[in-house]
Nucleic acid binder design. Sequence first.
DNA 1: CCGTTTCATTGGGTTCCCCAACGATAACCA
DNA 2: TGGTTATCGTTGGGGAACCCAATGAAACGG
Lengths: 148, 148
Amino acid sequence: MSDDTPYAPSRIRALPSWLLGRAAARGHRLVADALATEGMRMMHHAVLSAVDELGPVSQAELGRTVGIDPKDMVALVNDLQKDGLVTRTPDPNDRRKNAVEISPAGKQRLRRTQQLGDQANAELTAALTPDERAQLITLLGKITAPER
Amino acid sequence: MSDDTPYAPSRIRALPSWLLGRAAARGHRLVADALATEGMRMMHHAVLSAVDELGPVSQAELGRTVGIDPKDMVALVNDLQKDGLVTRTPDPNDRRKNAVEISPAGKQRLRRTQQLGDQANAELTAALTPDERAQLITLLGKITAPER
DNA sequence: CCGTTTCATTGGGTTCCCCAACGATAACCA
DNA sequence: TGGTTATCGTTGGGGAACCCAATGAAACGG
């Protein structure tokens, strides 16, 4: 594009950080709206999905995996437990921990929310070819990688 | 990748919406931290930059350009005006509007914040080649485009 | 002239993020 | 063994970005 004109129209709109914010906002909106039909928020689904994958797991490890503040994790697991989607039992080996585990109802719910999430993501990337979508995922992976 | 195994390790982490959220969060953190050294937030810089490009402009149009809620725009312009970076004068042609204009101090501040923003974005995309960075920008543009 | 629209502003609300503290418990190590 | 250090769940406070609704004033359209 060779964009060395003195000032581009709306300079910030060409910055990765800005575009990322916009794209993320749209993605969040699409996914959140989809999940709302099941009465869940994005973080509910993320946690439920992580519990399903990790099996019985402590809240602290869940937080590290999904990247959620322990404070918010408490409320999230409260919600999921209240809806009977996960169980929270004291860990006999370490009485500080709660063993969070997905329930049959949770697995069922997860199946639906995963589908909703996939649909929303399909809509989000509707303007992209499969190749482009794969490229995007790769590039985003590199950006988020720093693996602190 | 043909990923039809029953359950992949952390399914959500492969979703564009999830990656976008993570990448955007990192970008926001980097830019916000950089701008904080000048006592500004991201939206301050965005508005200031837009005012600079558009010349005397109403708050409503600013909001439409940058994608900010009118409510928040009031507070933002208040801040910028309080710091003497923009002027807010009643528009003689349309007494409903405020003509927001950048001041010399605003231009000076903008020069620094633009540099800080560019630096932060360079760090954000440090793991990318120039080609990849251009690709990313193109792809993100397509995602945010729907142009509604 | 009158209904509709726009503008700036105020108000209310939600979600996600980050930091700090606490009691209880476990792990470490000298 | 005993004493420090670290972790876990929980509670607390706070900020930033986002969205919706309503107001009075002013402009616009037919």
